[in-house]
Amino acid sequence: MGFPAVRMRRLRSSSALRSLVRETDLRVDDLIYPLFVVEGTGVKHPIPSMPGVYHYSLDLLEDELQEAYDAGIRAVLLFGVPDHKDSVGSSAYDEQGIVQRAARMIKEHFPDLLVIADTCLCQYTDHGHCGIVAPAADGRSAVIDNDRSLELLAQTAVSQAKAGADIIAPSNMMDGFVQAIRAALDREGYTHVPIMSYSVKYASAFYGPFRDAAHSAPQFGDRKTYQMDPANLREALREADADVQEGTDFLMVKPALAYLDVLRELRERHQLPLVAYNVSAEYSMVKAAAMQGWLDERQIVLEMLLGMKRAGADLIITYHAKDAAKWLREEA
């Protein structure tokens, strides 16, 4: 049976009818707001490649959190930008590290705000890699020592949980990182703290502005030996399967826009909550075009985030979170 018996426009004739049959919803509760915290006082430093995003010292972070909270946001993702860097990223697992102090402050002032701690070493190492660098067996090049790195990543996760982090979000892409972190958390009595694994993290060109913000660009080489080849989908499924077997509580795909097919495949394969990371360059491209007057930022952002939900994401990490939350509440 076809036209004229079937008329698709019947269900589009009014706003109320379109809302009634809408298949996908984007809600404020779906959004996670990433924040960059730094040492010092009185710091609210703009990140040039990410308009509207700032480095915050802890004394000024409270105002930003209050604004986000008032907009309805109930989850933040913390990235630390330390003053001290060394070869083993010791500031990452320092109990007085910037993320640990930020977590304690947030839980004191906003006890019902979920604190998600990014668990990696790249911001804290002087070489900018996500693990410990060791000489290669041939003596001619350096490699990332996977298993030694796991020990420090587990130590970092425990220190973050001890400081009050509600969720540990390991982004390092070392083999076995979920198992190592789960075992360490359980051993220290944090069996209740979930892991939001960066399960599928591609070696992407979309991270450029973030590396400026986090001061985390590699000082030599690249991250292609541990982050994924953008050409691969089947490998992404294997990565996610491994993390599920090791005990993750969430799966994540990063970046989002160029990898919506990966989101869809994971949605059909696994029942765990699925997170899309709307990364820095995806954000900055929209901001740059909006500043030129080439597009309607509000409409573009909401459509883009809705597309991630439609592809299968349950949650979205996005630098647009505060604006998107306000827009969604205005439309409610």
Rank of each mutant, 00 (worst) to 15 (best):
H129L: 09
Y226E: 02
Q245M: 11
I73F: 05
L306E: 00
V28K: 09
A258M: 07
M228N: 14
D30L: 02
R101A: 08
E330T: 10
R182D: 10
K107N: 10
D229W: 02
L58C: 13
W294R: 12
Q245K: 11
D70I: 01
Y54K: 09
A71T: 07
V275I: 12
S284W: 12
A231T: 05
Y190P: 14
K107C: 14
F210A: 11
R234N: 15
A313P: 05
L17F: 12
S159Q: 04
T191G: 13
E64H: 10
A281G: 04
V88W: 04
V21C: 08
A325V: 06
L114A: 11
S49R: 15
E239A: 02
Q66E: 10
M105V: 09
M228T: 02
L302I: 14
D29H: 03
L237T: 14
A240M: 08
D212Q: 14
E235R: 08
A321W: 03
I47H: 10
E62W: 07
P135K: 12
D126N: 15
R329K: 15
K85L: 06
T248C: 15
W294L: 15
E151F: 12
P230S: 09
M291A: 15
V286C: 00
L305T: 01
L153T: 04
Y69S: 14
H215F: 00
R140Y: 08
G52D: 13
T24S: 06
L295G: 08
Q292K: 15
Y202I: 12
V81Y: 07
